[in-house]
């Protein structure tokens, strides 16, 4: 895009600046729109599983429900509790939202369609996702209230526990792909299964890692069955209890942007990203732009997320910790050893 703006007669610095700003807008605005629509999808899926109708009043099929909710929230009054730590109370939702957006900078949507094609892309994602706990912790502490505080405690313990196993799972993928760059990881999956299937899920050593990654991404985004931070029966609404109007909406938007990010990572790391599922040109197969394949995969994973949400009951907290530390961690560590051993035997055998 920089070259395009240079052809309009700008010098390199300005062209780069304008191109980057355009890139950010091109990612952030559609992302916000898709978050609004995906909330609608989420509610429709739960409704279908619960044999209800779901939102169906605002707009055709209730399509505009999220926008109506957004408008309502926008017009409400922001209430700050008198005992709250005002500055941190207001910064917390902004942190959550910003961090949720920042991670999208390194996501490749198609071959070459990436804002920042850095060679530590996956580490950047890991770094940013480890930051997202701060929004929750800050809001829980600054609210100066018992339930949000408990929720913040739970959130920080939970996210640290699951980040450890996520780290090992990502190491497995990185070992096999031989790079940290997300675009190159996707390209490495081309024709991975017998030259026919695009994607690491077909690999017998990496498939269990995908299962672990999917469950860990549920825990990392605090979705059911791991939504102990906002367990209604115990903690009212968790860290969001004291929040109202836009500050509440920012938490919500950030949460869904994170969920979409995790779905995208599932698609990119294990299901071949923008590549079509099969590496065979079934007539119009290769003519479909890669971005549609990626969106279809994201949508599929999002459906799985809301499917889980509608069907699975919540974990107890000690069960959550046991799953993270005593099952996922040894299992993923074992697979790091297995995969590096296998690669030493086959690929790097001198």
């Amino acid at each position: 895009m920089t070259a395009f703006f240079q052809s309009l007669g700008m010098n390199y610095e300005w062209a780069w600046f304008v191109a980057t700003v355009c890139g950010i807008l091109l990612i952030a605005l559609p992302l916000m729109l898709s978050v609004a629509m995906i909330i609608y999808v989420d509610r429709k899926v739960w409704a279908a599983i619960n044999l209800r109708r779901g939102p169906n009043v605002v707009g055709p099929f209730g399509l505009l429900q999220s926008f109506a909710d957004g408008l309502k929230v926008f017009l409400q009054e922001t209430i700050i509790p008198s005992a709250a730590n005002k500055g941190i109370f207001l910064i917390a939702p902004i942190v959550t939202f910003t961090v949720a957006l920042a991670a999208w900078a390194v996501i490749p949507f198609d071959a070459g369609a990436v804002l920042a094609d850095i060679n530590v892309g996956l580490l950047y994602i890991l770094a940013i996702s480890s930051l997202s706990v701060y929004g929750v912790v800050m809001s829980g502490w600054a609210s100066n209230s018992k339930y949000p505080f408990f929720s913040a405690m739970r959130a920080s313990a939970q996210m640290i526990s699951y980040e450890v196993s996520i780290g090992f799972i990502l190491i497995c993928v990185v070992l096999w792909a031989g790079t940290f760059n997300l675009s190159e990881i996707v390209m490495a999956q081309e024709g991975h299964g017998f030259g026919i299937v695009n994607g690491y899920f077909f690999n017998i050593l990496l498939f269990p890692m995908w299962v672990l990654f999917f469950i860990s991404s549920l825990a990392e985004t605090q979705r059911v069955p791991f939504d102990l931070t906002e367990a209604e029966s115990e903690l009212v609404a968790g860290y969001q209890t004291e929040y109202s109007s836009m500050s509440f909406a920012l938490f919500w938007l950030g949460e869904y942007a994170n969920i979409l990010l995790m779905c995208t990572l599932n698609a990119l790391l294990f299901f071949g990203g923008w590549l079509p599922p099969l590496n065979i040109d079934l007539i119009p197969w290769f003519d479909i732009p890669g971005i549609f394949w990626l969106f279809a995969k994201i949508f599929f994973f999002f459906f799985m997320f809301s499917w889980v949400m509608a069907t699975v009951p919540r974990y107890r907290y000690d069960q959550l910790m046991r799953l993270g530390w005593k099952i996922f961690l040894p299992f993923s560590l074992l697979f790091v050893v297995l995969i590096s051993g296998w690669l030493m035997l086959t690929r790097y055998a001198a």
């Binding site: 890991l126 770094a127 480890s130 930051l131 706990v133 701060y134 912790v137 405690m153 920080s156 980040e163």
Partner: peptide, 10 residues
């Protein structure tokens, strides 16, 4: 930032 400072804060 992601691990040590969270535990500090904790």
């Amino acid at each position: 930032v992601g691990a040590v400072a969270v535990l500090f804060l904790f």
